[in-house]
């Protein structure tokens, strides 16, 4: 299936690819403009939708590596919350540097702990994620008891103005190189393609998966900085409440991986952005916000149904492969 699409792609010119890639969000934004030109015709409104997708994009990138090696991790949200609480605490003592280091270092640590639990216990990642989620959420609640969980306004600069773009571009370069131009990225894709073959090629899958957790932790650290700077506060969650943080980013990644006209790293951006715009469309139509997930869901089904049924030559078997890569 992939080779077929690749062959088709080789015919397309670069410009065509860019248009194809951005087609989805642009079309969606057009819907917004059509509802009200005077509200959404402005450049500011257009930029707003991009800004809004940044946090989910960063979380999405951090999950992309895990999803590529079939790691099913529920704990991302709980790690983000705990790292955020620690980062906010350090920002009160050491300022902006405290926020950055607090978030990133603690997030890398939490990612490594999750990875260690995963490799030592050798239990499925879904269970590892669930177990550490219970513990991290609880630690967050206990930690936040005697602590101010908000960040003072002078330390919110990272999510304002051009800073957010600088941060995202730096992240993009890092993720793009890691995913496409390193041995690590190659091996990850090999494991994602077929784990048994990858192992027989001499790839140390256990080590790679542990490193994926660490790298994921590093990226979640940056997502945390954006999350905290964006909202100005971070609140602990319990009773599995942190799980929903990763929901929208996952949808973005799923959608992004469907877009075949570009690299997955760019795809995740397009996916996250599209889902952000759908949220805005909901409000523009005045629909109840509880329906947002329904609309996103139906939208995903339509896009996927279209993508997967374009070529009637394939038997339902091919869906099986899709599921496994999506896991």
């Amino acid at each position: 299936m992939k080779t077929n699409i690749l062959r088709k792609e080789s015919i397309l010119s670069g410009i065509k690819r860019v248009i194809l890639t951005l087609l989805l969000p642009i079309l969606l934004y057009l819907v917004l403009v059509l509802t009200s030109f005077e509200k959404f015709g402005k450049f500011d409104s257009f930029i707003m939708t991009i800004n809004q997708s940044m946090v989910n994009l960063a979380i999405g990138w951090s999950m992309m590596f895990g999803i590529s090696v079939n790691l099913f991790d529920f704990s991302v949200g709980s790690r983000l919350v705990l790292a955020g609480l620690i980062g906010v605490h350090f920002s009160q003592k050491f300022g902006l540097l405290g926020l950055i280091l607090g978030c990133v270092v603690s997030s890398v640590l939490l990612g490594s702990i999750t990875g260690l639990v995963f490799s030592i216990l050798k239990v499925p990642s879904i269970i590892t994620g669930f177990a550490v989620l219970l513990i991290f959420e609880s630690l967050g609640v206990i930690l936040s008891k005697n602590m101010v969980n908000a960040i003072s306004s002078e330390h919110l600069v990272l999510a304002k103005g051009f800073n957010i773009y600088i941060l995202i571009v730096l992240l993009f370069i890092f993720v793009y190189i890691m995913y496409n131009h390193t041995k690590f990225g190659f091996q990850i894709k090999a494991i994602g393609g077929n784990e048994r073959v990858a192992t027989s090629m001499g790839i140390n899958t256990a080590k790679l998966k542990f490193l994926t957790y660490v790298l994921g932790g590093f990226l979640v650290g940056f997502a945390t900085i954006l999350y905290v700077s964006n909202a100005g506060t971070i609140q602990p969650k319990d009773g599995l409440g942190s799980m929903s943080i990763a929901f929208t980013p996952i949808m973005g990644v799923m959608l992004g991986m469907l877009i075949k006209s570009c690299n997955s790293v760019v795809g995740v951006f397009v996916g996250s952005w599209s889902i952000t715009i759908i949220g805005s469309v909901m409000v523009a139509f005045g629909w109840e916000s509880r329906l947002q997930n329904v609309i996103v869901g139906i939208f995903l089904i339509i896009v996927m149904g279209f993508q997967l049924n374009r070529d009637k030559l394939f038997k339902p078997i091919t869906t099986k492969k899709n599921i496994q890569t999506n896991n």
Partner: peptide, 14 residues
Amino acid sequence: LKIPSFIACLCMMF
């Protein structure tokens, strides 16, 4: 429709 069951069920859940 050949939609991955993961996505189909997630949407059904919503």
